[in-house]
């Protein structure tokens, strides 16, 4: 991406595409970050305070603890994919914002 320097920093905030970019991106970042932190912290919280649940067998000998841990990996990949998908919109808005 090669973009020239802007003459002033105050001007672009009035661009509607830029205003949308800032609002949507901030909202999305906060939502995604809070969601994954809460879901992730379930793991140590349950591991610390609900050991019987973690040791309960769900599939064959695979315990709830392992299911939850593997689910965290899937959550990580899915959330990364969602972010990449959403980021296309942000890239487009950013392009419009600098025009």
């Amino acid at each position: 991406m090669t973009v020239s320097r802007l003459p002033s920093a105050a001007a672009p905030t009035r661009n509607p595409a830029y205003a949308r970019l800032v609002t949507e991106r901030n909202r999305f970042t906060v939502l995604m970050t809070v969601t994954f932190l809460v879901l992730y912290l379930l793991l140590p919280i349950l591991a610390g305070y609900n050991k019987p649940l973690m040791a309960t067998k769900v599939f064959g000998n695979v315990t709830f603890g392992y299911v939850l841990a593997f689910a965290q990996f899937i959550m990580g990949w899915v959330m990364a994919a969602v972010y990449v998908f959403k980021a296309r919109t942000f890239d487009r808005l950013a392009q419009e914002a600098v025009q």
């Binding site: 793991l43 591991a47 610390g48 050991k51 392992y66």
Partner: peptide, 23 residues
């Protein structure tokens, strides 16, 4: 117990603290 939590981390707060620092 090998398939469940608690063999190494006996203090839940310490575990949560470790997880926060990692993430």
């Amino acid at each position: 117990s090998f398939l469940g939590a608690g063999v190494k981390y006996t203090n839940p707060i310490d575990l949560i603290s470790l997880c926060l620092a990692l993430v």
